[in-house]
Amino acid sequence: MSKFRFLKIFLFFMLSVIIITTSVFAFSCKKKVKNTEIILATTTSTYDSGLLDELIPVFEEETTYKVKPIAVGTGEAIAMGERGEADVILVHSREEEDRFVEEGYGTERRDVMHNDFVIIGPEDDHSDISGLTAVEAYITISANEASFVSRGDDSGTNKKEIEIWEETGTTPQGDWYIESGQGMGETLRIADEKQAYTMTDRGTYLAQQNNLSLVVLVEGDEILFNPYRVIPVNPEKHKDININYEGAQAFVEFITGEKGQAIIKEFGVAEYGQPLFYPDVIK
């Protein structure tokens, strides 16, 4: 029994298994090669609120496209667009969006909808931030070292939070400043468990309100405005990858069109008594 005979058998075996499995997969995927798939990289706030579950089926029915929504933070969604891993992105961070389009990764930015951020906290509001502006509230929270939960995940909400901290001129750090590193839903629950302050988009807060004891303390401040925009990824930047630009444009037209906007306007009204997002194209 030679030692190397075994190695040969072993290698042959491994190779055949690998070849068989890849060919099976390649074959099973052939059917779908026609470019009808759109990868939509978006934020957890649009996804976890359930809005996309309303929008996408209608869009798919009207067109022949198939949308694959991937819910990540705004930072990651933009990174996916830069790498060409997504065909279209729906995000909320103005500065990043502008950079994305100016550097040529996206072809255009279109306003879709907006809502606002709110600062929420325990009912007793022990740091007394109710009614303050966002910047004043943050200054008070940090001065009192009251527990504050940050997303800490480079999402649009997180970027907005950092923007406000920058306005205050202080850098939040210490045991009171908790970075969850998770989506808005989880972050709300962590804040709730710890009876801490946090900032959230209003949509996710409304959708989760039944499970939370935290209340809205700061709202209506201009800095808390939260606009969402949709950007198709530039296929010229990724010539070696098959970006579905037509599909992306169709999705942009749909979500900024009459039907998409009407769905956004109606979404959540029946359940929460108010819309979670306000459409930007129709009033």
């Binding site: 790498r83 891993e85 070696d240």
Partner: peptide, 14 residues
């Protein structure tokens, strides 16, 4: 990944 070695198989998210 689309830009990965096997990107042409379109396996991502399947």
């Amino acid at each position: 990944w689309r830009s990965g070695m096997l990107g042409f198989l379109k396996l991502m998210y399947t």
